[in-house]
Design a protein around this nucleic acid. Structure first.
Lengths: 134, 134
DNA sequence: ACGTAAAATGTTATATTATAACATTACAAT
DNA sequence: ATTGTAATGTTATAATATAACATTTTACGT
């Protein structure tokens, strides 16, 4: 029983690689243009790789930006739920972890008689660096 | 000094009206198709109305679904930040209010030396009705 | 009331993001 | 070896959103 990340196919590895080496989230078509030299020619090949990577938790989608980011947490438990700090100035993204968010949201949902399954949280503001400059 | 909602233009009123009378979030092109009889002919007219309505807080966008929902809260303070409970079964949406979320997120951001400005939160699961059925 | 600046409109074209459909290939599990 | 599942390659198209520009309406200070 190997780690899911060890079983990646060529296309999946190619896409994951470019995301892991990016300092910021990337859009699907940016990924496509950047890796056409590696044999990926169509959007669908990128989207399919992304779908798989998201499914196994190696990549998360940032919904409000239509962009994708590699997860830096070994064995990230955020296969479904995600929480990000997004800098409005430099577009850098930090992922929040810890399941205190999970328990907090469960309670909030409970108050509304709602059965919590997962969440997406995007917090916008200024990152450490940009705070200083502004 | 009238309420912003009293100053709406014809297109803005038309778009807001259809959203307020919908039991669920609507997509931009669904809105377009539904109101072509009222003189709105192009996507841009819908998107411009939506932009304005979002700006004044009468409409919120649900990022993960590319859809739009009218805010039911009189004088909603969520001009920028939004928090939703989204039912995965019936697609119904409930907006969470109260600034306890604001203070909680501010603290979470603070821990990462991040200056909180606003947020989008989408909680997925089963609403009251669908919980019973499943 | 008039002039004017800002906002909204109308319209055509196009950019961006994502999926459908279908034929083929790789590959792991019996 | 066989077979079922997943992944791939490819073309076409759907769905979502904005650019550019000419025109009209509106708000509002004088």
């Amino acid at each position: 029983m190997a780690l899911a990340s060890e079983n990646l196919t060529k296309n999946q590895k190619t896409v994951l690689d470019i995301l892991e080496n990016s300092s910021e989230p990337l859009k699907a078509y940016t990924i496509l243009f950047d890796i056409q030299k590696k044999g990926i020619k169509s959007p669908l090949q990128v989207y399919r790789a992304l779908d798989k990577l998201i499914e196994i938790g190696k990549v998360h989608k940032i919904e409000s930006r239509n962009s994708y980011v590699a997860c830096k947490h070994e064995g990230c438990n955020a296969k479904t739920s995600t929480s990000f700090l997004i800098c409005e100035n430099c577009d850098s993204v930090t992922e929040l972890t810890g399941n205190n968010l999970f328990s907090y949201f469960s309670k909030q949902a409970e108050k509304n008689n709602f059965n919590y399954k997962k969440h997406n949280l995007e917090i916008f503001g200024l990152c450490k660096n940009c705070k200083l400059k502004n």
